[in-house]
């Protein structure tokens, strides 16, 4: 259940006071990946990123924190949140990310 489902069930008496949201990062319940028209694909062809930790440009520039650093020295694209902007593909010095239509 997302926080929106939870709050929709509440009447006015049960919502937290002052219009606050009483816990952090509830927006993670909102999957912006549904916006995506183009999907980033890493290491599809010959252009391979073998040592992401030496670069991390895609990771740091992603406006949606949708590229995740995982151990050891690997990256994952979080399609729950990736909006498909293409920043990572354009900025990758190795051109190891391609955008493909969904």
């Amino acid at each position: 259940m997302t926080i929106q489902d939870e709050y929709r069930k509440k009447g006015w008496k049960d919502l937290p006071p002052g219009g606050i949201v009483d816990r952090p990062a509830t927006a993670r319940d909102y999957k912006t990946g549904t916006w995506r028209a183009f999907r980033p694909i890493r290491n599809k062809d010959k252009k391979i990123c073998q040592n992401p930790e030496a670069c991390l440009v895609c990771w740091i520039l992603c406006p949606d924190a949708a590229i995740i650093r995982v151990e050891p020295n690997e990256l994952e694209i979080d399609l729950d949140y990736c909006k498909g902007c293409g920043v990572c593909a354009l900025e990758c010095p190795l051109k190891a990310i391609e955008m493909e239509q969904e």
């Binding site: 929709r8 919502l15 606050i20 816990r23 509830t26």
Partner: peptide, 24 residues
């Protein structure tokens, strides 16, 4: 214990929030 205060409340929630304010 981070909270967020001062959000954008759209029609689905605004009136409920204001009703709570009135009650207080």
């Amino acid at each position: 214990a981070p909270i967020a205060q001062g959000l954008l409340a759209l029609p689905e929630f605004y009136m409920e929030i204001k009703r709570g304010q009135q009650e207080a």
